[in-house]
């Protein structure tokens, strides 16, 4: 009871402070608000620069992708690191490495048969077998087509992760782990960020700042730094997708099997 009273007081104070600020907000949907156009009498805001100039500077029509992977690429790299850290934290918290019987389990217990080993699995299993390749192809499309349509590494990576989760849901976790083992996905997660960071590091060796993709035109042999930026963005999106896929599946595998990485569900 006491907690509820104090919570109510804290929440009301917070709400009041927030409302106090809202009174001075620009109108909802106002295209000339400071965030959209810059403060009055000041320089135009960064977002106008993105809308007007980013295609010229990066040759990427999807402005969200160009801002995400280039202008604020440093943020995005650490966003991927957040995912990686979460995967490691979950591993550290839940994973039980001292299982007494490391060999594959004997036949599933009676309760598990309905999900795991019996004929009822046929419908679910077949549907999943059909759906999974389609999901994966669409995921790859989303990763690769992030320059021109909504999508990119995070969205595609989540879909790829989901396809492996579907393997586990439609069949069992052991099947999914046979396709994407624990060693593999933890390494893939590091590898994804490594790909991202490598795209930042190579420009440093060419005498420019971290993540300055433009200088990579010497390596990609593109005409002009803009296309080099565009290609590099695809590269970092692939890295992001690898990490996100691995960690999404890692979260599922750990949570669903209570860190045992066998049996589960």
């Amino acid at each position: 009871m006491n907690a509820k009273v104090s919570a109510t007081i804290a929440v009301i104070i917070t709400g009041a402070v927030l409302l106090y600020g809202v009174a001075d907000f620009p109108d909802f949907g106002d295209p000339t608000s400071p965030a959209n156009a810059g403060v009055e009498g000041g320089a135009p805001s960064a977002s106008l620069h993105f809308i007007n100039e980013s295609y010229k500077e990066t040759k990427v029509p999807n402005l969200v992708t160009s801002v995400l992977a280039d202008y604020r690429g440093y943020d995005t790299m650490f966003e991927t690191v957040v995912i990686f850290a979460a995967g490691l934290a979950i591993f550290v918290i839940l994973r039980n490495l001292r299982s007494d019987d490391p060999l594959p389990e004997p036949l599933p217990a009676t309760e598990d048969r309905f999900i795991d080993g019996d004929h009822q699995r046929i419908i679910v299993g077949t549907t999943c077998r059909i759906a999974i390749p389609l999901v994966q192809i669409f995921a790859l499309y989303v990763v690769a087509h992030g320059h021109h349509s909504p999508g990119g590494g995070f969205q595609g990576g989540v879909m790829l992760g989901a396809s492996f989760i579907l393997v586990a849901l439609g069949g069992n976790l052991r099947d999914a782990l046979a396709r994407l083992g624990e060693d593999t996905f933890m390494r893939l997660a590091s590898l994804g960020i490594l790909i991202y960071a490598a795209f930042g590091l190579v420009p440093q060796f060419l005498g420019r700042n971290f993540l300055d993709y433009g200088v990579l035109e010497k390596i990609f042999l593109t005409d002009g730094p803009e296309m080099a930026r565009s290609h590099s963005m695809l590269g970092v999106e692939v890295g992001v997708a690898l990490t996100v896929m691995s960690i999404m599946f890692a979260i599922f595998a750990n949570l669903s099997s209570r860190g045992e990485m066998r049996g589960g569900l």
Binding site: A35, I51, V64, V67, D75, E79, F154
Partner: peptide
């Protein structure tokens, strides 16, 4: 430019969603 939504908050929120 007013015909296109501001991309920056979307980028920021992609990060916040992931976090």
């Amino acid at each position: 430019a007013h015909g296109v939504a501001n991309p920056l908050p979307h980028v920021l929120m992609l990060t916040a969603i992931v976090v």
